[in-house]
Amino acid sequence: MDEKFKPAKRVAGQKPDVWSIVNEAAAASPKQPIVNMGQGFFGYNPPRFILDAAKSALDRVECNQYSPTKGRPRLKKALADAYSPFFGRKLDPETEVTITTGANEGMLSAFMGFIEPGDEVIYLSNIEMPGGTIRYVPLQPPKNGATRTSSAANWTIDWDTLESTFNAKTKMIVINTPHNPIGKVFSKDELTRIGDLCLKHKVLILSDEVYDRLYYVPFTRIATLSPELAEITITVGSAGKNFYATGWRVGYLIGPPQLIKYVAAAHTRICYSSVSPLQEAAAIGFEEADKNGFWTPPSQRCKASIPEGGYFVLANLTKVKLPEGYDFPPQVKDRPRDFKMSWFLIVELGVAAIPPTEFYTDERAHLAEDWLRFAVCKNDDVLETAKDRLRGLKKWMV
């Protein structure tokens, strides 16, 4: 290939993505239809009041045209009203909220707004970014994860590693709570300790809280711990996750004006503005959710990590012995054990799950290669079918 046509390094060396591998396995499996517990999309529709809002928005001329780059005023106000009680003060919708095309684009906007070549970003999260240098600090699985079912709280931070990762080049830390894929909700003590490190080293915080309405234990927002932390924190949210509409790609960022104005500027350059009718529907969703009661909280051989939030469950499959000489395709045979296990479950049992080492660097993959991530935001009949099929693992268990 001519030098001028070579791709950027950030994409040139990428391995086949996990979704392509799972889809290929699904197509090859004799067990049809596949029970999809892999990708985290819901098996049911958003509530009727928000679907009706989306349909109504399509009939309005202004909802089919460009929205303001920072988002529709109605949605920003609805978000400010919805989140002000959590932040303990009245949020300004014009200066402290901006709308993005999904949470991922919101995070990209935050990176593009603040990260320069040479800056370092610490990750207690699971996403990629262009530019800058990434320093991953993975969560450590429970030592008895293969023998006991336990809470996701037992996935822990190696504090010595985290503290030693901060240095003069560190510009930002990315955290994710409730956590994907683990389902861990960081405790107030953990967040306070992280926040103290960020204040000490003058580091920005990007807090990915897209599952902030899906938690089953006390949930703390790091931006609410102190006025000092509020000044250095950008909170990431997702209307798609909140309203079971992940395909809508309506995200948002909340933070102090001196931070939000720069991520909003980057967002403008990335995609100018986000989908207008779905912003309008999301606004109505936040306005009507309380009235509709929408925010009301909702002994096996293979052991699991009981989630504290989100809609994923990690199952430990250490006791499953893959057959010797099993015919794995080239794109799987050299990947960690969980990739092989994912392929095996799809082909042999017709159940799709995601290998969590997809969220780890190669050198840290050993921490998670005995686990698989199952999305449980499905109808009961789907979950029952998955349960019945997974019983077929017994003949390969030791």
Rank of each mutant, 00 (worst) to 15 (best):
K169D: 15
K169E: 13
T170F: 07
K171W: 05
I173H: 08
V174S: 11
T177M: 09
P178H: 01
P178G: 10
H179V: 11
H179S: 14
H179E: 11
N180I: 11
N180V: 13
P181L: 11
P181G: 15
I182A: 10
G183S: 13
K184I: 12
K184Y: 05
K184W: 05
S187V: 06
S187R: 06
K188P: 03
K188L: 12
D189K: 14
D189I: 15
D189R: 14
D189M: 07
D189N: 12
E190K: 06
E190S: 14
T192G: 09
T192V: 08
R193D: 03
R193Q: 08
I194H: 02
I194P: 00
I194V: 15
G195S: 08
G195M: 11
C198Y: 14
L199I: 14
L199G: 13
L199E: 12
H201C: 06
H201V: 03
H201G: 09
K202E: 15
K202T: 13
K202Y: 06
K202L: 01
K202G: 14
V203E: 07
L204C: 02
I205M: 10
L206S: 10
S207E: 10
S207P: 04
S207C: 11
E209S: 15
E209I: 14
V210Y: 07
D212Q: 13
D212R: 13
R213F: 06
R213Q: 04
L214E: 05
Y215C: 09
Y216N: 10
V217K: 04
V217I: 08
P218C: 03
P218W: 00
P218N: 03
T220I: 14
R221D: 14
I222L: 07
L225N: 05
P227T: 00
P227S: 00
E228Q: 12
E228D: 13
A230L: 13
E231W: 07
I232W: 14
S238K: 08
K241W: 01
K241A: 03
N242D: 09
F243W: 02
A245E: 06
G247D: 00
W248G: 12
W248E: 04
V250E: 00
G251E: 00
G251V: 06
G251Y: 06
Y252T: 03
Y252K: 03
G255V: 07
G255A: 04
G255I: 05
P257V: 00
Q258P: 01
L259C: 04
K261I: 03
K261T: 04
K261Y: 04
Y262V: 04
V263T: 10
V263L: 03
A264Q: 04
A266P: 01
T268M: 07
R269A: 13
I270W: 00
C271M: 04
C271G: 15
Y272F: 14
S273W: 03
S274V: 15
S274L: 02
V275I: 08
V275A: 05
L278R: 06
A281Q: 06
A281D: 01
A282S: 15
A283E: 05
I284Y: 14
G285R: 09
F286E: 01
F286G: 02
E287S: 11
K291E: 15
K291V: 08
K291G: 14
K291Y: 13
N292R: 05
N292T: 02
